[in-house]
Design a protein around this nucleic acid. Structure first.
Length: 590
RNA sequence: GCACCCGUAGCUCAACUGGAUAGAGCAUCUGACUACGAAUCAGAAGGUUUCAAGUUCGAAUCUUGACGGGUGCACCA
C-alpha cells in the first residue's frame, strides 16, 4: 500500500513546473487545525527561484488535482499548503489498510540484504547490563527490517578469542573449583579470570605462564583446545538461556576465532597495497591525506600540532587485534551474503574504531565499499539514578539474568496486587510478559544516542509512555472481544469484515492514526531508531483510549457496533504487531 | 589539547531532521467509576530550549564563540 504522503507527493510533482531534484516533502500536519497533511514545497521552490512563496503556492494550487482525495487545500502562513482529507476517502483507506496483512506498510522498491551485527557477548563472562542495549536494539531493527520485506542475517559476533584465554586457561588448570563450576559456570570462570588477571599485574612470572598457555592454544595444543571449547560450550548455554528469555534469536553465531585463517592475508593485502606499513614494530594504517585534517580519522591534534593517530592491524608481537578481525569479518560477510547494508550495533565509545575501520575498508576494497552501506548504530550508556553508570548497590556490574529476574519479580508483585484471584501460574506468565516488556521498552524509548536513567518505578508504571500502558490498551480491547464471545453463546457472535463508518471525531482521529503506521515504519529503519516506533505506538494507544472513552462499542447497535468492533480489532492487531516489532509480547489479561 | 555526543518545564524524556502557538509522563491542582478493565479519560498550571552573536521568510535543530557534562584518543575488545 502506498502511503498518503507519497500519493500526495506524486500529485504535487505533477502540479509543479520543473520540480527538479528537490524532494517535495509532505508531512502530517503539525496542528490538526491546519488540516491533515502539510507541505512546505512552495517555500523551498520559492527560495530556489527567488520568488514569492505564496505566489508559488498559488501556482501549484491552480494546477493541483486532488479533488478525489482532499476536501480542501489551502495556502497558509508563509506559504504552507494544507491538505484536508475527504472523509469518504479516509474511510476507504482505513478499510484497505485493515485488509492488508502488512497493515499499510509499503513494500520496498527492492528487498535489501542486511547483515545486523548485535549483542556480541564474551565467552567466559556473564552477560551484563552493558549487553542489553545492543541486544534489544539489534533485535528490534532486525524484526522491523524483516517485516518491511528485507532479507536479514542476524549475526552474533561473540568474543571467543584473544589474550584473556591465556589467563582463563592458566586459572582453569590451577585454581578451578569444580563444584562452583557446576553450580554457576559463568561465575566461576569470571572468578578465575579476575584472580589470574590481578596476579598478572603484580607478578611477571604469572603473566609469562598465561602467555604460554595462550601460545599453546593458538598453536593447536589438544588439551588447551579442548578446554577452550568447553568454555565456549558453557558460555553458549548461558547465552541461550538469556536469549530465550528475551525472545532473541540469531541466524549465525560466528565467534572471532572463526576468522583466524583470514587475519594474516588481510594484513598482507594491506601491506602489499601500501595501505598499511610498519611502525614501532606494529603494522599500522596512517592517513593518506585525502581528507582535511579535522575530518581525517587517522590524525589527531595535541599541543604540538597534528600528529598521527594510526589504526593498528598487527601488533608488534605479531598478533592480530580487533581491527584485523573486524576487517576480516567484513570481508567474509560481503563474500558470503553480498549485503546492501551491514549494521553494527555497539555503544558510542567505539565510534572512532568503526570510522577507522570503514575508512580502511574503502581504501582496501573500493568496489565493494561502493555497493554496501556500512552503518555504525551506536548508543549511549545506562545510568543509575545518581547519574553514574548503572551498578548494583554494592557497586558491582548488574548481571543481565539478575536484571530480568528482578523485572519479573517486581511485575509479579504488581499483578498479584491487582489481580489476586488469578491462578499463580497465570500471574507468573503475565508478570514475565510485562516485566521483560518494560525493560525492553524503557531501553528502546529514549533517543539511542545519549545516556538514559534506569528506573524501575518509571518503566513499570501503568501511567505514561511505558510498556504496561501499551499492553493495557491491548488488554482492554481483548476484554471487549471476550465479553462478546461470552455473549456469542447467546447468538451474538462477531463476524469480522463489516464495513467501516468513521462518524465522530474520535473514530476519525483513530482512523488517521492507524494509517500513520505505514509512514512511520520505513523511517524507523532508515534512521535505525526504534524510539520513533515506540512513540508512535504510545500515540496510537492514547488515541485508542480516547476513542474507547467516547464511543461505547458493545452498547452501540447495528452497523455502528460492527464498525466499532472492526476499529477495535485493527487497533489490537496494530498494537500487537508494533510491540512485536520492538520484541515485546502482549498478554490477554493483566 | 583534539574529536564525537549532550545541555529543552521542578524531575525523566520527545519534537517527523529548518516549519506555523516547543509536546508527553511523573510530581502539584480540578473533574469523571451502580461504568465495554479507573492499570483509564477530560482539564489547569508549569518554558527567554545553558548563554551570546550570525545565516533566512522561519532556528531547540545549521555556523561561530563562551560556559557546563559524558566519552574516546598506539599495540584491550
Amino acid at each position: 500500500m502506498e502511503t498518503i504522503p507519497s500519493i500526495l507527493e506524486e500529485r504535487l510533482k505533477a502540479a509543479v513546473e520543473d520540480p527538479g531534484p528537490t524532494p517535495l516533502s509532505i508531512t502530517s500536519a503539525s496542528d490538526s487545525r491546519f488540516g491533515d497533511y502539510q507541505s512546505n514545497a512552495a517555500m523551498l521552490l520559492a527560495k530556489l527561484r527567488k520568488s514569492n512563496p505564496r505566489l508559488v503556492a498559488q501556482q501549484i494550487l491552480d494546477r493541483l488535482q486532488v479533488a478525489d482525495i482532499c476536501s480542501s487545500v489551502e495556502i497558509a502562513g508563509a506559504g504552507f499548503l494544507n491538505f484536508r482529507l475527504r472523509e469518504d476517502w479516509l474511510q476507504e483507506r482505513v478499510s484497505q489498510m485493515k485488509a492488508d496483512p502488512r497493515l499499510g506498510v509499503p513494500s520496498p522498491l527492492r528487498p535489501l540484504g542486511m547483515v545486523i551485527d548485535f549483542s556480541s557477548p564474551n565467552v567466559a563472562k556473564p552477560m551484563h547490563v552493558g549487553h542489553i542495549r545492543s541486544t534489544i536494539l539489534g533485535d528490534s531493527l532486525a524484526r522491523i527490517a524483516a517485516f518491511i520485506g528485507h532479507n536479514v542475517v542476524r549475526d552474533n559476533h561473540i568474543g571467543d578469542w584473544g589474550t584473556q584465554f591465556g589467563m582463563l586457561l592458566l586459572g582453569w588448570k590451577t585454581i578451578l573449583d569444580r563444584s562452583a563450576l557446576e553450580q554457576d559456570p559463568l561465575l566461576e570462570m569470571e572468578r578465575i579470570y579476575k584472580n589470574v588477571s590481578a596476579r598478572c599485574r603484580d607478578d611477571i612470572a604469572v603473566l609469562e605462564k598465561a602467555r604460554h598457555e595462550l601460545v599453546l592454544l593458538q598453536t593447536g595444543d589438544p588439551e588447551n583446545l579442548l578446554l577452550w571449547k568447553e568454555m565456549i560450550r558453557l558460555s553458549q548455554s548461558q547465552f541461550d538461556t538469556i536469549y530465550g528469555r528475551l525472545g532473541v534469536r540469531f541466524d549465525v553465531t560466528l565467534g572471532e576465532s572463526f576468522y583466524n585463517e583470514r587475519l594474516k592475508p588481510v594484513v598482507e593485502e594491506l601491506k602489499a597495497s601500501r595501505i598499511a606499513r610498519e611502525s614501532d614494530g606494529a603494522i599500522c594504517v596512517f592517513s593518506d591525506g585525502s581528507h582535511s585534517q579535522e575530518e581525517d580519522v587517522f590524525l589527531i591534534k595535541d599541543k604540538d600540532g597534528w600528529r598521527d593517530n594510526p589504526a593498528i592491524v598487527l601488533k608488534s608481537d605479531g598478533a592480530a587485534n580487533y581491527m584485523t578481525t573486524d576487517l576480516a569479518t567484513l570481508q567474509y560477510r560481503i563474500e558470503t551474503w553480498h549485503p546492501d547494508e551491514i549494521v553494527y550495533v555497539t555503544d558510542g565509545r567505539q565510534q572512532l574504531h568503526f570510522r577507522q575501520m570503514f575508512s580502511i575498508f574503502r581504501r582496501w576494497k573500493p568496489e565493494a565499499a561502493a555497493t554496501v552501506r556500512l552503518s555504525h548504530v551506536w548508543f549511549g550508556s545506562i545510568l543509575g539514578d545518581d547519574g553514574r553508570p548503572f551498578k548494583t548497590r554494592s557497586g558491582e556490574t548488574v548481571r543481565l539474568a539478575d536484571l530480568l529476574d528482578e523485572a519479573e519479580e517486581r511485575s509479579f508483585a504488581q499483578v498479584s496486587e491487582r489481580n489476586p484471584a488469578l491462578p499463580e501460574a497465570e500471574r507468573r506468565e503475565i508478570a514475565r510478559i510485562i516485566g521483560i516488556g518494560a525493560v525492553k521498552y524503557a531501553d528502546l524509548l529514549p533517543h539511542r544516542q545519549g545516556d538514559y536513567m534506569f528506573s524501575w518505578e518509571r518503566m513499570l508504571s501503568f501511567q505514561g509512555n511505558t510498556a504496561p500502558y501499551l499492553q493495557n490498551a491491548y488488554v482492554r480491547i481483548r476484554s471487549i472481544f471476550r465479553k462478546l464471545a461470552e455473549a456469542g453463546e447467546a447468538g451474538e457472535a462477531w463476524t469480522p469484515g463489516a464495513p467501516l463508518r468513521l462518524e465522530n471525531g474520535a473514530e476519525i482521529a483513530l482512523g488517521k492514526r492507524l494509517l500513520e503506521f505505514g509512514e512511520v515504519l520505513p523511517q524507523v529503519l532508515q534512521d535505525h531508531r526504534p524510539n520513533t516506533l515506540a512513540n508512535y505506538l504510545y500515540e496510537l494507544a492514547n488515541t485508542f483510549h480516547a476513542f474507547y472513552e467516547a464511543c461505547p462499542v458493545l452498547k452501540s447497535e447495528g452497523d455502528q457496533r460492527a464498525s466499532r468492533l472492526e476499529l477495535c480489532d485493527v487497533s489490537a492487531r496494530m498494537l500487537k504487531t508494533g510491540l512485536g516489532l520492538l520484541g515485546i509480547e502482549v498478554p490477554e489479561k493483566m
